[in-house]
């Protein structure tokens, strides 16, 4: 029996800034996890990752991160991805601050 596939998003770090980005359905890189494309089919996910990894002049180190379907888009299932989505806990830096300024 095939094991159940945990949904994924394609994520990476932006080449210039180094910050966390996610792949959207229309092939943009977004800073906002809520906008990311949630991939529920393993074969599709692998293909999306392969395509994304070729975009060497935009990003670094693309990989598939486990997510669940949340009410506001994909939601991390592991604390590491939760921190990547937010930023460090000791300072109001990273995405938590960027979200405000973009707000």
């Amino acid at each position: 029996m095939p094991r159940a596939f945990t949904p994924k998003v394609v994520t990476a770090n932006a080449l210039l800034e180094g910050d966390v980005v996610y792949l959207t359905e229309d092939n943009r890189w977004t800073r906002d996890l809520a906008e990311a494309e949630l991939l529920t089919d393993e074969a599709v996910a692998e293909e999306r990752l392969l395509d994304a990894s070729r975009r060497q002049s935009e990003i670094v180190g693309a990989y598939l991160a486990d997510m669940s379907a949340g009410t506001n888009g994909p939601a991390p299932t592991h604390f590491r991805e939760d921190f990547r989505r937010t930023g460090p806990s000791n300072y109001h830096h990273g995405k938590q601050a960027d979200a405000l300024s973009e707000g």
């Binding site: 180094g18 966390v20 060497q56 002049s57 180190g61 930023g87």
Partner: peptide, 28 residues
């Protein structure tokens, strides 16, 4: 050369590490 796309990350990574530049969770 990395920024203009002539170097891939695989090629660039050892070069940046030789110069102390890491890529971490949220940033370089």
């Amino acid at each position: 050369r990395r920024i203009d796309g002539s170097l891939t990350e695989d090629e660039f990574r050892p070069l940046r590490l030789m110069n102390g530049l890491y890529l971490q969770l949220h940033a370089y």
